[in-house]
C-alpha cells in the first residue's frame, strides 16, 4: 500500500515556566493512502500535539514527518504551498475554529483565495455554495450567517466544508465529534464517511472515543504520555489488545447492549489519572496505573514488540 504520511521518532517539547513538557516523546507511525488512521488516548497523551505538528502549527523538536516522501518537519509557513493545501484540519470545538465575526461565505472563501482556487469574486459564491451542498447544508440558508448564529453540528459541517475547499488528500480530524451529542455525532461521522468515499480522502482521526474508532478506523494507535503504546489494525486491536492501557480504555467504554459487553476484554477498573507530562514516571510510563506492573516496569522502558503483522506493543508483559 501507498504510504501517504510517515512519522519517524517525532518529538515535541514545550518549555514552560514549570519546566520542560514532553508532550510528544518519540513516536513513529505511518498512514496509508485512503485509510482512516485513529490516534487514541486520554487528554494529555500528546495526540492533539501530534496532529498539530502534522498540520504545521508548530515545528517538531526533533524527528521527521514525511508527506509523499517530502520532509515537512517545519512550520507550515516554510512548507511548499501545494503541500499545505493537501493537508487540512478540522478542530474539536467549531466555535473556536471558525471566526465568529465573519460570514460563512468568507470563512470558506478564505482558503479558496489563498490557494488561488478561484478566479474572481463571483466564483467564490458559486464555489462556496457547492461546498456547502457537499456537506448537506442548503447554501442559501448558510451563506450569510455568522458562526455564533449556528449550532455545533452545523458549525462542524462548515469546518469540514472549509477543509474540503482546497481539495485536500489528508484531513486531520482533531476530536471532531467530542463536543457534540450522539445524534449530531452520528450525522457528522456519516458525512465524513461519505466524503471519504467521494473524494478518496485519508483521515487521521484523533479521539478518545473507542466506540467511534471501532466503526470508522482501519488502523489504531494508542497513545499514553507522549508515546505510542500499541498500534494495530482496528479489528485486531479490538479482539486481541495486549497493552494494559488499551484494555483499560476498552473496559471503560460505556455500552448499551449485551453483545457489546461480551466483546469487551476482562474488566480493568481505571485507577488514577494520567500523570503530568512535566514529571513522566521512569521505566514504563504506565506503571503507576497498571494493575499488572512488575518490578522491572518501574525501571526499564519497554521496547516495541511486533506481535504479528502490523500489531506493535510496548509492554514487558506482552510476549
Amino acid at each position: 500500500m501507498n504510504e501517504l504520511l510517515v512519522v519517524k521518532n517525532l518529538k515535541k517539547y514545550f518549555k514552560t515556566k514549570f519546566g520542560l513538557v514532553k508532550a510528544v516523546d518519540g513516536i513513529t507511525f505511518h498512514i496509508n493512502e485512503g485509510e482512516t488512521f485513529a490516534l487514541v488516548g486520554e487528554s494529555g497523551s500528546g495526540k492533539s500535539t501530534t496532529g498539530h505538528m502534522i498540520v504545521g502549527m508548530y515545528a517538531p523538536t526533533s524527528g521527521e514527518i514525511y508527506y509523499k516522501m517530502n520532509n515537512i518537519s517545519v512550520h507550515a509557513s516554510k512548507r511548499p504551498k501545494n503541500i499545505t493545501r493537501e493537508i487540512q484540519v478540522v478542530f474539536q470545538d467549531p466555535a473556536s475554529s471558525l471566526n465568529p465575526s465573519r460570514y460563512i461565505k468568507d470563512i470558506i472563501g478564505t482558503p479558496l483565495k489563498v490557494y488561488n482556487l478561484i478566479r474572481n469574486s463571483t466564483e467564490v459564491e458559486q464555489k462556496v455554495a457547492d461546498l456547502l451542498e457537499n456537506v448537506e447544508l442548503p447554501p442559501e440558508l448558510y451563506m450569510y450567517r455568522k458562526p455564533r448564529e449556528l449550532g455545533g453540528g452545523e458549525l462542524q459541517a462548515i469546518a469540514i466544508a472549509r477543509a474540503l475547499s482546497t481539495n485536500p488528500k489528508l484531513i486531520i480530524l482533531d476530536e471532531p465529534t467530542s463536543a457534540l451529542d450522539v445524534i449530531t455525532q452520528a450525522k457528522i461521522i456519516n458525512l465524513l464517511l461519505n466524503l471519504q468515499k467521494k473524494h478518496n480522502l485519508t483521515y487521521l482521526f484523533i479521539t478518545h472515543d473507542l466506540a467511534v474508532v471501532r466503526n470508522i478506523a482501519s488502523r489504531v494507535a494508542v497513545m499514553y504520555l507522549g508515546k505510542i503504546v500499541e498500534t494495530a489494525p482496528t479489528i485486531e486491536l479490538f479482539n486481541h489488545c495486549r497493552h494494559p492501557y488499551s484494555m483499560m480504555l476498552f473496559s471503560s467504554i460505556p455500552v448499551i447492549s449485551e453483545d457489546e459487553k461480551n466483546l469487551k476484554p476482562k474488566k480493568i477498573t481505571s485507577i488514577g489519572e494520567i500523570p503530568s507530562s512535566l514529571s513522566i514516571p521512569p521505566g514504563c510510563r504506565f506503571h503507576t496505573r497498571c494493575p499488572y506492573a512488575e518490578a522491572r516496569c518501574k525501571v526499564e522502558e519497554p521496547s516495541l514488540k511486533h506481535i504479528n503483522s502490523g500489531h506493535i506493543v510496548a509492554c514487558h508483559l506482552a510476549e
Binding site: 452520528a186 466506540a211 448499551i256 447492549s257
Partner: peptide
C-alpha cells in the same frame, strides 16, 4: 428503553450510538 424502545425518536437516538460490534450505520438522521 433499551430492549424495546417504542417512540421513533428513542429508536433514532439508540441507533445513533456507536457500537463496539462495528455494525453502526445510523439511519434517518
Amino acid at each position: 428503553i433499551f430492549s424495546e424502545p417504542l417512540h421513533p425518536y428513542t429508536k433514532l437516538l439508540l441507533s445513533a450510538v456507536p457500537r463496539l460490534t462495528g455494525r453502526w450505520k445510523a439511519e434517518g438522521l
